[in-house]
Simulated assay, not measured.
Amino acid sequence: MDTNSFTYQVFWQGVIDFSGATPSYTLNIPGFNPANCVFMIMPTRAQDVQSAETDSSGNTKSYPYVITAIGQVIVKPKNPSASASTLQTRIVAKGYAVRFAT
């Protein structure tokens, strides 16, 4: 990344833990705007990184589904349009809200 043409600021961070029975997270993040912000998720445990494309536990190691809106980020353990039988993620990750400016 070339920060000569833009700046960025991490203005929110927290743990996103789907290892238990958490149905979803609704994060109220003042100043979050999808027009100039992103929400990133980074796994924190080695066991949550899929070892290969053919790993049979792929869904449980997949990234959560993220919905962004002004002032809010919703993180779900699987795509809302997935079937009821689809396995949901079980990862523990760190979430970051990042604002960009030019």
Rank of each mutant, 00 (worst) to 15 (best):
K78Y: 00
S81T: 14
N59T: 07
P34D: 12
Q50P: 06
P64C: 03
C37G: 02
T68Y: 04
F32N: 00
I41A: 05
S57Y: 02
A52L: 13
S85M: 06
A35M: 14
T89L: 10
I74L: 02
T54E: 10
Q72A: 01
I29Q: 01
A69W: 03
G31L: 03
S83R: 12
S81L: 03
L87A: 14
G71Q: 07
I41F: 05
S81G: 01
P77K: 01
L87I: 05
S51L: 15
T89C: 12
S57W: 05
T86P: 04
Q88E: 13
R45D: 13
T60M: 08
A46L: 11
I29N: 05
V75R: 04
V38H: 06
S51I: 15
S85F: 10
T54H: 05
Q72K: 06
S56N: 15
I67S: 14
V75G: 00
Q50E: 12
V75T: 09
I41W: 12
N36S: 14
S81F: 07
Q72T: 14
G71D: 06
S83L: 09
V66W: 05
S57Q: 13
D48E: 01
Y63N: 08
V49G: 06
V49H: 13
S62D: 12
I74N: 04
C37R: 09
P30I: 09
I29F: 01
A35L: 04
V49Q: 10
A52V: 11
S81A: 15
P43W: 00
T86N: 03
R90I: 04
N59C: 12
I74H: 04
T86R: 09
Y65K: 10
Q72N: 13
A82K: 00
P43Q: 11
S56G: 15
P77G: 09
G31R: 10
N59V: 10
S85H: 03
G31P: 09
G31E: 05
Y63E: 08
S83M: 06
A52K: 10
I74E: 07
C37L: 00
I70H: 03
P80T: 03
R90P: 04
D55R: 00
Y65F: 15
V38R: 14
S51N: 10
L87E: 06
S57D: 14
G58E: 08
S56K: 15
S83G: 09
T54P: 02
M42T: 14
P77A: 07
Q72V: 03
N33R: 01
T89A: 11
I41V: 15
G71S: 05
N28C: 09
V75F: 08
N28K: 13
A69D: 15
A35S: 10
V73C: 09
P34L: 13
F39P: 00
G31W: 02
S51T: 15
N79F: 14
A84F: 13
T89N: 02
P64V: 00
T44D: 04
S57M: 12
G71P: 05
Y65G: 01
I70F: 12
T44W: 02
I41N: 09
S62V: 09
P43G: 11
D55Y: 08
T54C: 02
V66K: 14
T60Y: 00
S85N: 14
A46V: 15
R90G: 12
R90V: 09
S62N: 15
A69L: 00
M42G: 04
N33Q: 06
Q88C: 10
V73G: 10
F39C: 04
L87D: 13
V75K: 00
A84R: 07
P30F: 08
I67H: 03
